[in-house]
Design a protein around this nucleic acid. Structure first.
Lengths: 241, 241
DNA sequence: CACGATTTTTGACATATATCAAACCGCATT
DNA sequence: AATGCGGTTTGATATATGTCAAAAATCGTG
């Protein structure tokens, strides 16, 4: 099994990062921002299908995704696998590992990606000094809890097409937040990975895509998606079972 | 709709609480413990089906369950509902509200219950002073993330009986942690609530209970459960679909 | 203790999604 | 340009769980 082949880059401070508004609290003073620069140490590059960390790895750092994207997945001993999330630039990954000082899932690059390593003990020390940072960290973790509970709702009570609609709308919204098109994008994950995330088999995902296309809600050609009718997709969700 | 009818009790310090080992970090110094007593203010009592908080309520405090139990649930606008968890004594509830300063779900008492209110701004201030408390709070939130991701695995890839087995084993383990029987207990929630939590209809839950009983894995009479074969229940999980 | 209301169990049947299989397509490599 | 391979689409069929309904058990209340 090939090891991830990280490429180490020079130190690059948060204060000059164009993603700071996604990663960091607003309203930091210049002084606080300066302190924060102690934190960001190195960037690491990953190729598609490299592991950022594996379940069982010792926890030392959170990671901020600087570019590219990842999936996180749990592997159950009996071979079952569940993709628990897809993460993109500006998102923080690794929060699940704090609870036991051990990573609880795998994080795998979906494409060439760069991450910033955030040593967690430094982050805790800084957040004792900078209340805004403390609050930000708490919000980050809480947001992850809310997100996961939203997926529980999806998995527990939505039908296949509703799940896919939620998935596409969520992607759309996140691309828009990053200044990208909300209606045209490339999927970085396979049908199988989408299916695992949504609790469906890949064939069901594929059929749902085809059906949305036949309804003129989207154009989809393998991994290229164009949303033709955002409101129409949203309307899928209101048709209770 | 009847409002919750809280009964206010006298201040009672964490330092003298018999649940402290569940709620609080180990290894606090006497001095730190003393500081912590600033935190716990009042206890409130709730009757069955009272709301501890509702989705949309302003967030001010986390709550430590002192006795009794609660369910948390999300209500989707279209009427769909998802139970996101069942909480019992010693567990902390309300972490999802930090992200937006607004409660993201309802918390409803499943029986007569008492909770300790933990004002969050005080908790943050204290955790800046007491690193062990800071770390504890982080672990608490991270544990919630891991728990939720476990439920995603359950909802995304397990069959009905596997889900119920996981549910029963989890309850069993939590009762045992509290010094109660791991094999005999009362369910505090209805079949409908279990079903919502597990992504199943109540009839399916009922059938799974009946099947486990016919297999001599459990005895179940409505809400009274006796686990006859813990290992057998665990074995349910290894039968991959 | 009896009553009605609610919850649970059980059965018969319906259906959404899984499973199995084959064809198709796009991409990378030669 | 041809080849091979993994990913995707589509079809036919199977099955787990949902739906609807009725009976049974339980609970709360007068």
């Amino acid at each position: 099994m090939p090891l991830p082949a990280p490429i180490y880059h020079l130190h690059s401070p948060c204060s000059s990062c164009n993603l700071a508004e996604l990663c960091l609290p607003a309203d930091l003073s210049a002084n606080e921002m300066h302190k924060l620069d102690e934190l960001s140490t190195v960037k690491r590059s990953f190729a598609r299908s490299d592991y950022l960390y594996r379940s069982g790895d010792k926890f030392r750092s959170l990671f901020a995704i600087h570019s590219g994207s990842f999936k996180t997945q749990i592997l159950h001993e009996d071979g079952r696998e569940q993709v628990t999330g897809f993460q993109m630039a500006g998102e923080i990954i690794g929060l699940d590992a704090i609870s036991t000082d051990t990573h609880a899932c795998d994080a795998v690059a979906l494409e060439s990606s760069v991450v910033c390593e955030l040593p967690f003990n430094k982050l805790e020390a800084l957040s004792r000094e900078i209340p805004l940072l403390q609050r930000h960290l708490h919000k980050l973790m809480s947001r992850e809890i809310v997100r996961d509970q939203g997926i529980m709702l999806l998995l527990g009570s939505m039908r296949a097409e509703e799940r896919l609609a939620v998935f596409l709308l969520n992607l759309s919204q996140r691309f828009a937040t990053r200044g990208l098109s909300a209606t045209q994008f490339q999927l970085r994950m396979s049908r199988q990975e989408i299916g695992s995330y949504l609790g469906l088999k890949l064939e069901t995902v594929s059929r749902a895509f085809s059906h949305f296309q036949s309804e003129r809600l989207i154009n989809v050609k393998v991994r290229t998606v164009e949303i033709l009718d955002l409101a129409g997709l949203q309307a899928c969700l209101n048709n209770t079972r």
